[in-house]
Design a protein around this nucleic acid. Structure first.
Lengths: 224, 224
DNA sequence: TAGGATCCACTGGTGGATCCGT
DNA sequence: ACGGATCCACCAGTGGATCCTA
């Protein structure tokens, strides 16, 4: 077994050691506050788990654990383990989308090894009450990779021919594209069919809840 | 006279109204603190004068006064009016330097209309003690523009052939290129003679003190 | 239900320049 | 003297995601 594979096993073991803990208790054990209402602290649970598992990477990182090539994703689920939300993967560069190939893409690199950590939210309790559930280390099977590639190709194909207005969240079986901007007013640059500049809102890749729900139950699943 | 020309006259008149005032007093009249030692507050005098004259532009601006096309530059001078320092103009984009033409360059746009405001520093007093001196509204004469173009072409020519290591502050009669980074460790991308990527430190255009000193005394001067 | 809108923390890059060793 | 190194404030962009109407 390589050092990298050993490191990944250690990481998964550490994640298993957190199962059953409340996120608020994790925060306090790290010396952090667990204050703040839900709408003001959207990214906080994810940041807590990163700290608890020692994610390095810092800024401008490709993965949360660069030496392991592993991406950490927390995912809010209900008592049955069904995801409540889609899962953000990474931003989509509109300006050079037509240059992108799935095999070398940022989104594929992110998804090549993902450690999903479900956080169980019962009722409408605030995030500190969420409990860590069993982690799932996932890599796409060849069949899954083919579907994801197909979703990706559909997106970059549309952008490549300048039909960006047709790029809605309706597209994609598992991988979709949605707006990603702190305020709805941020603009970025894309190119139309005639090569003209178009100011449009930044987008990101997201995994649909149906897909993440299925791979949490069975990592080789092929849902709808 | 156009509205723009009227606006410029109003601006210059307002700058004349500040002559003799101490920068620290200006700061207080704007509700700002005039604390801090010299090394910690390098850009403060310039920011004070911008506020005092109502510079808009905010971020991502081409000029300090966009409607007027005027750039504001404070310049520290001694009791004789001789500049103590070079004057920063703007950053130099190394990645696409070979695409740049003087006529359409950012540096030429910045220098097309400059309101220089000398700040007289006597002895080794801190910046709040500096006094506003007579402003000079300057636009390059055709002769001056030709020299500046020559300096610019020398720089972009070197970068275009990938000889960036020869790009030192020794080059340029009036316009020189020097490092411009908050820490010496910041890197940016340039291209070598064979088109390979080179990580190098960001640079900026600066006006030599000899040149600014001459045009403060005579805007059409042609020093060394 | 889910597509489109939005929230916070953090930081790298930019704009304002001057410092300081050789 | 001056070429190379450095300093601070500020803000837009990124990374962490969830909110919220129709």
């Amino acid at each position: 077994m390589s050092a990298r594979e050993e490191g990944i096993e250690v990481l998964v073991a550490r994640a298993r050691g957190l199962v059953g803990m409340r996120v608020g208790d994790l925060a306090r054990s790290l010396g952090l506050s667990s204050e703040g209402d839900a709408v003001r602290t959207k990214g906080t649970p994810g940041a807590i788990l990163e700290l608890a598992l020692g994610a390095t990477g810092g800024s401008s990182k490709v993965h949360d654990f660069p030496e392991l090539g592993v991406e950490l994703k927390t995912i809010p689920v209900d008592l049955r383990g069904v995801p409540a939300e889609s899962t953000y993967v990474c931003t989509l560069s509109l300006a050079d989308a037509e240059m992108q190939e799935w095999d070398d893409s940022w989104v594929r690199a992110k998804l090549s090894h993902v450690l999903f950590i479900p956080l169980v939210a019962s009722d409408e309790e605030p995030w500190p009450a969420r409990r860590v559930a069993a982690p799932v280390l996932w890599s796409p099977t060849p069949e899954q990779d083919a579907i994801l590639r197909s979703d990706f190709d559909d997106v970059v194909g549309l952008i490549g021919v300048g039909r960006i207005e047709e790029l809605t969240a309706h597209r994609g079986r598992w991988l979709q594209v949605r707006p990603k901007a702190a305020h709805g007013r941020v603009r970025t640059t894309a190119y139309g069919a005639d090569g003209e500049h178009i100011a449009t809102i930044p987008r990101g890749f997201y995994l649909r809840p149906r897909f993440t729900g299925a791979i949490l139950a069975d990592p080789s699943a092929l849902p709808d």
